[in-house]
Structures are given as structure tokens and as C-alpha cells.
Simulated scan of single mutants.
Amino acid sequence: MARSVSAAVVTAALGISACLLTASPAQAATGAVTGLAGKCLDVAGADPADGTPVQLYDCNGTGAQQWTVGSDGTIRALGKCLDVTGNSTTDGAKVQLWSCTGGANQKWTVTAAHDIVNPQANKCLDVTDNNSANGSRIQIWSCSGGANQKWNAPTGNDGTPSGFVVSEAQFNQMFPNRNPFYTYSGLTAALSAYPGFANTGSDTVRKQEAAAFLANVSHETGGLVYVVEQNTANYPTYCDWSQPYGCPAGQSAYYGRGPLQLSWNFNYKAAGDALGIDLLGNPWQVENNASVAWKTGLWYWNTQRGPGSMTAHAAMVNGAGFGQTIRSINGSLECDGRNPAQVQSRVDAYQRFTQILGVSPGSNLYC
């Protein structure tokens, strides 16, 4: 199940697959958002005016602490939106209440890891100076995993972390025979690594991107059945000794693993560096930890062009179409008439998944 690539291309494609193979969106949820020291996200003075600071404060059950986490990515209180001041993307930019505009500085992803991320800035909602005193201002800051960036926010009535367009029920419908390793919680826990994924653009675009990613994953893994490459004879072939870091885990350690079948030592090195995980030294994490496995798939989807001219993420959010995601993942072996059956397999999965999510598949499905 692993793709043979030129070893000279350090961030080339991941692995060819040798394995061929309507529900409503999550509802908005309202309640308190609790964080550091069990205190609440609070609108100062319960003042609904534009520009009112958002702070940490003892929970008191008032409307100033009742936040609606919407499926549109907004978080609202007192009829207005949680807003990054001045549309800033820099560390330390303060968060305020403001009339809802639909701007990217008012979009948030609530992750299963309890981060609240502004995808435009790729930064986390943060209590300034880790100070739990009443009145401590809320800001955005580079995500660190610290306690001052962890929040308990209301979720939709199906338990889906707000901001992700695929519910657990829809995920299970897409993959009825999946390997228990590929958990929904592992996927949602991985989303914080790339908060722009399936969270950029209109509701239609976000659903199309999620369907496109999962369709390619389905093709690569035989419907989320295979965790590792099935052809063990290929295992020794994915070590490029010309790389200065070599293959510290061993000649045969870098075979295809995970939802997009990550393979080659240089891909494990690049993915690990991007994710802050030592995958070069311990590639087995990808087959032992569902969240790590999903993160490697999201890493490739969001950052690597492979044999294509754009990342798969860019293809979906910029309207290039599903066909360009195929090109980015395995275009050199499938596109331009090289293997139309493989392309059709991916397209079939994409059309099936968009139907489950209740959205049009759009145009330009083939490559």
C-alpha cells in the first residue's frame, strides 16, 4: 500500500494504494465556557457594546457568560461575537465582543483537545500571563498546550466538537467496517494541528473539504481497514540513506502507515518536525496512536503538494476541485489516464461522502 517515489524529492507523495476498494449538521450549543481555575469566559460588566473586553471571571450563570458555539464557527454572547481586536494575527492580540461581521477574526474551532483556535491566526484563546484572577484579559497566543489555553465549551447535541462538520454518526456511516484503531476521537483530537482544515470558507466548502479528505483516506486504506502497508516485501525500500539523518529506526522502519499511508524516512522526518513528534526515531507511533496517525494525514493534506501544483487543502478551499486532490496525492500514477479505475474509486467515495454530509460535490471531480 505504499507509493514508490523518487528519493530525491524530500516532500514527495506518501504511498500508492494497492488496496482498491443524509444527515443534519451539528446544532449550535449554548452554555458556559470554563477555563483556568474553573472560571468562566465573561463579557466585562455584561456590556453588549462593541469593544467590550472579554475576561476570566468567577462563574455566575449570567448572560455575560452564556456563549453560543455555532456550527458557523462563531462564538456569541449578548447577541454579539467573540472577536480578535483589529483583525490581528499576532501573539497578545486581545479578544473582545463585537457585532458579528462574518470576518475571519470571529471564527473559532473548538477542538476535542479543549483548545479554542482562531484559524486565521492559527493561535489559541489564551488567558493573559496564566493569571487566574478575576478580570484577567483574554487574548490569542501561539498554541502551547498550557492550562491557560484549555477550555470546556458547549458542544452540539450529538456531542460533536463544535467547528467540525462531520459528526461521529456520519463518520461511522462513511466507514461501517473500519478498523477500531481509526477512532473518531483520534480524528477530532488531531484537528487542532491544522485548524484551517474543513474550517475555511462557506459551510459548503468546509463539508466538501472534509468529504474530499475522507474519500482519499478511504481509498488509501480500503475503507479505514488497513493501518499499515500490506506488502511487507516493500518495507526495506523506503529508506533514503542519502539524507543526512539516515534511518535511525532501521532500514525497514519507514513503510506506509496511517490514513494516507505515510512512507519514506524523509516524509517521517518532515511530518515529525512539523508536528513536534519524533517520527524519524519512532515511526511506530503512527500505527500505535490514532491521533498521531490522523495528524500525519492532515500534515500531508494541508502542507504538501506531492506530484500536484497545490496542496489538497488549497485545491478544495480555492475551488480547483476534488480532481486536484487526487493529483496532489497520487497524480503521477493515476491522473491523465494513467489509472482511471483508481481515480474513479476516489471519486465514487467522494460523491458518497458528500451525499452523507448533504452537500453538492461541486465540479472538476477528475484529474
Rank of each mutant, 00 (worst) to 15 (best):
G319N: 04
S192D: 11
Q261A: 01
L36N: 10
F322S: 03
S144P: 10
F164L: 12
T90G: 10
L214A: 02
P25N: 04
V317Q: 02
N157C: 02
T62W: 07
G362P: 02
A8W: 15
T90E: 12
I140W: 03
A2P: 10
Y194T: 02
T200K: 03
N199W: 15
V9T: 06
N288W: 11
L78V: 00
N216H: 14
K150E: 00
L78T: 02
Q251K: 15
Q285Y: 12
A320Y: 15
F322C: 12
K94G: 07
Y226R: 10
G92C: 02
G61A: 05
G201F: 12
N134Q: 07
D273S: 08
S71K: 01
Q342T: 11
L41C: 03
T160F: 13
G258W: 14
M1N: 10
Q55E: 09
R3I: 14
G281R: 01
P154G: 00
H313L: 02
A270V: 05
T155P: 05
G35T: 01
A32K: 10
T354S: 01
E229A: 07
K207Q: 03
G79Y: 11
R178C: 03
T296G: 07
A93V: 12
A233Y: 14
P176Q: 10
T237M: 13
V9F: 13
L260S: 04
L41K: 00
L298M: 09
N179I: 08
K269E: 11
T22K: 11
D42I: 08
L56W: 04
M310V: 13
A147C: 03
S132T: 10
G222F: 14
A32Q: 09
V228G: 08
V10P: 05
G92Y: 10
L82K: 00
G223Q: 09
T74C: 08
K207V: 05
Y184G: 05
D240F: 09
